[in-house]
Simulated assay, not measured.
Amino acid sequence: MIFKQITVTDFRNFDSKIFDFHPSLTIIIGENARGKTNLLEAIFLSINGAGFRESKEEELITLGKGQAVVEAEWEDKKEEQKFQIVITKRGETIEKKFFVNKTKKGYYSYSQYQIKSVLFAPEHIDIINGSPDKRREYFNRFIAIFDPEYKKKVHNYEHALYKRNKILEHHTNDQTLKEELLFWNDYLEKQAVYISAKRQEYSDYLNDNQSIDGRLFRINYLKNELTQELLNKVYDEEKRLRRTLIGPQKDDFQIHLNDKNVHHFGSRSEQRLAVFWLKLNEINYLTHFFKKKPILLLDDIFSELDTKNKKVILDLIGNYQTVLTTTEKELLDLVNMPKTVIQL
């Protein structure tokens, strides 16, 4: 499918606007605080049913208004497809309605009509610079796109981990503690085995696709296994500290460029390129899995890249419909492909 047009009404800082998009590349250019990211978020919302920045969904609605409407027009095999999301504030609650070609749908049905999107936003640098939970969250969110069972296992694991930690935290009788933990140990192990296997599987995929413009990235999966045997070994320490000490909630992932750990020793440009390596592999994996190319959404990712790496990324995105935002007018001179420019 080709993304052609979006109409936004009372969405963030837009009152009523229509924007058209190129089947290859659309560049949204303008100074800061002009609405570039808001427009990109409207596209993301139309595909995924939720924004990527709001802490409260009411923030998607223009201040002082009661309803926001986002309507996206796509072309699929020369047939027009229209997707609409209506977000309405009713007192303290937010109501969302989904429409496909003017027919109301539930969210799941709506999502089945959509292609996938790959988003690269400035905050994704936290995958490199942030704590291990940022990297686990990245893996969880991406794997769940194509593996609903993984999403279920992670939810089950986190719920069971909470229960187990409560038992450890409040136990008063050492005689009965092992018995109380027995069920949760077994349950956690079953979830953890699946989670670790899927994380390893995607890490292996990344390591089979290392290259960007001749530079080789790789990822080291620092697996923290949870088994009955390992739980028995740490039992005394867990009893003393009153919390679970092992398991995939303590996994980490370290990315290397050649032999350099980019988390600790990479330049800002190299760190951003490392994130793009992850995003490029998202694109390739989703294309292979769903047999459809995703749309690529790039939010101001060029600001800390040198000219060489900017050209590398622009060359790599040529095979995918891309919408990007920037404040840099000189970026237009680096683009050697058909494009539409939206000036805000």
Rank of each mutant, 00 (worst) to 15 (best):
I2R: 11
I2L: 14
F3P: 07
K4I: 15
Q5S: 04
R12G: 02
N13C: 00
S16W: 11
D20Q: 13
H22C: 01
L25S: 05
A33R: 06
R53E: 12
E58A: 04
E58V: 01
Q67P: 12
V69A: 02
E73W: 11
W74M: 11
W74Y: 15
E79K: 04
F83I: 01
T93N: 08
K102L: 15
D126S: 10
R135A: 02
Y138N: 01
N140W: 15
K151E: 15
V154Q: 01
H159L: 10
Y162M: 02
K178A: 13
F183W: 14
Y187R: 02
I195A: 07
R199Y: 10
Q200A: 05
S203Y: 14
S203I: 13
N209W: 11
N224W: 13
E225Y: 08
E225G: 03
L226H: 01
Q228T: 08
K233D: 11
Y235Q: 05
E238W: 12
R242D: 00
Q254W: 13
V262Y: 12
H264V: 12
E282Q: 02
D299C: 03
D300V: 04
T307A: 10
G318F: 05
N319L: 03
T322N: 07
T322Y: 09
E330L: 02
D333N: 01
L334F: 08
V335L: 00
